[in-house]
Amino acid sequence: MTHCTDKQPVDGEHGPLAPPPASHLPLAILAIIAFFPLGVMSLTRSVTVGNLWEQGDYDASVRASADAKSWAMRSFSAAVALTVLASVGVLLGQR
């Protein structure tokens, strides 16, 4: 595999490959703040997206991008669920 001057991977006979998929890095950083354990999974997958794309493994980079977003959503869901449970616990504890 060769590289163009703009560092975009190329396929010898088909020219430049598709642009890299979104890494969802900002979302992953927010996910770490929301719920750390699942946020770390999101961040790990997010960082992998660019590396896989540069290696020419576009399909794996797309999967890593989807995984990063999925783990971030799980992190946000866990944070909301824990907040609701804690709020209910506090409200019931006051009775």
Rank of each mutant, 00 (worst) to 15 (best):
M1E: 06
T2A: 10
T2K: 07
T2I: 07
T5L: 13
T5S: 11
T5H: 11
D6F: 10
D6E: 14
K7E: 12
K7L: 13
K7D: 11
K7I: 02
P9E: 00
V10L: 03
D11S: 08
D11I: 02
G12Q: 13
E13N: 15
G15Q: 13
G15P: 10
P16N: 12
A18D: 13
P20F: 03
P21W: 01
A22R: 06
A22F: 07
S23C: 13
S23M: 11
H24K: 10
L25T: 00
P26M: 02
L27Y: 01
A28E: 01
L30A: 02
L30P: 00
I32L: 00
I32P: 00
I33D: 03
F35W: 04
F35P: 02
F36L: 04
P37A: 08
M41N: 12
M41A: 15
M41H: 12
S42P: 13
S42I: 02
R45M: 13
R45N: 15
S46P: 04
S46R: 12
G50I: 04
W53N: 00
E54G: 05
Q55H: 05
G56I: 00
G56A: 07
G56H: 01
D57Y: 10
D57K: 06
D57P: 01
D57I: 02
Y58N: 01
Y58F: 08
D59G: 02
D59A: 03
D59L: 02
A60S: 14
A60Y: 04
S61L: 02
S61K: 01
S61D: 00
S61F: 00
V62L: 15
R63Q: 14
A64C: 11
S65N: 12
S65C: 12
A66F: 08
D67G: 12
A68T: 01
A68V: 09
K69E: 05
K69F: 04
K69R: 12
K69C: 06
K69D: 05
S70Y: 01
W71S: 07
W71R: 04
A72S: 03
M73V: 05
M73L: 06
M73P: 00
R74P: 02
S75E: 04
S75N: 08
S75G: 11
F76P: 06
F76D: 03
S77P: 02
S77T: 12
S77W: 11
S77V: 05
A78T: 10
A79V: 09
V80Q: 14
A81I: 15
A81V: 15
L82P: 06
T83K: 08
V84L: 14
V84I: 15
L85M: 14
L85E: 09
A86T: 12
A86H: 13
S87Y: 14
V88R: 15
V88C: 15
V88E: 11
G89L: 10
L91W: 09
L91A: 12
L91K: 07
L92G: 14
L92W: 13
G93K: 12
G93E: 10
G93C: 13
Q94I: 05
Q94S: 06
R95Y: 08
R95L: 11
R95Q: 06
